[in-house]
Write a protein that binds this DNA or RNA. Structure first.
Length: 229
DNA sequence: AACCAGGAGAGAG
DNA sequence: CTCTCTCATGGT
């Protein structure tokens, strides 16, 4: 009976946090690095992005000014390891240019949240997930980031009353609503951890260490089934 | 050796 | 609005 019960987002957070502990995201030193990483990590593993970031640092290109004016032939080989490097080189530079045009990140986040989101989404190379990643992890705004893992988890757990796949905005609203009574600072911290926890969990259960539903819920199960969450 | 990775954009219907 | 294709390298 208990194993067919749908889970609420709060419970999900509790279980994941208890199991994995704080994630300390985003793995970057500056807000600008968050932006660069957010673009490069699209459909790509983070380890590849780390290599690319390292390369950019080595070439002293990891700054708004430099990246805004770099020539594509110089940029492409450095981020080649992240895949889609032709697109990403062009789009990454464009993203940096657009943000510089608006006076830099400091000034950019000094505006209403919805305005910032709208502007981010208007830039080529920034879709909903990347925009929200930047808003949350670079701007410390109380925004929940939805990714492919989130949809998968919501469907397979399942999460109670969760929206269907492909409905990004609905899923984001679903998570944000469940914590709406908390103060903004607290929400920011929650969303920061929850998204990172979902990523960590799915990376493990979907590839390396299969963890069945029983394990997930109770952390003690002798009959792990193949269908991991 | 297939399959997936912390997506996004463009085009078709 | 909802599919479907494309972009591409790197790890399991």
């Amino acid at each position: 009976m208990a194993k067919t019960m749908a889970l609420a987002p709060r419970q999900l957070f509790k279980l994941l946090f208890r199991h994995y502990g704080p994630r300390r995201w985003w793995p970057a030193k500056t807000r600008f690095e968050v932006v660069v990483g957010a673009v490069l990590t699209q459909q790509t593993s983070w380890t590849s992005v780390e290599k690319a970031i390292k390369q950019l640092k080595k070439r002293k290109l990891l700054s708004p000014k430099k990246l805004a004016s770099v020539r594509l032939p110089s940029l492409k080989p450095l981020i080649r390891c992240t895949g889609y490097y032709n697109q990403k080189a062009e789009r990454l530079r464009e993203v940096v240019r657009e943000l510089e045009k608006r006076g830099g990140l400091e000034k950019f986040f000094n505006q209403p949240l919805e305005e910032a989101r709208k502007e981010l989404l208007s830039i080529r190379g920034i879709g909903p997930e990347t925009a929200d990643s930047i808003l949350l992890y670079a701007g410390n705004n109380p925004v929940f980031v939805v990714d492919a893992y989130t949809f998968r988890l919501a469907e397979r757990l399942p999460l109670e009353n969760a929206p269907k796949k492909t409905k990004y905005e609905e899923m984001r609203a679903y998570f944000e609503q469940t914590f709406e009574k908390l103060p903004p600072k607290r929400r920011t911290k929650m969303f920061n951890e929850l998204h990172a926890l979902i990523v960590e969990h799915c990376k493990q259960v979907c590839r390396k260490k299969p963890l069945c539903r029983e394990c997930f819920l109770k952390r003690k199960c002798k009959t792990c089934r193949p269908q991991s969450i």
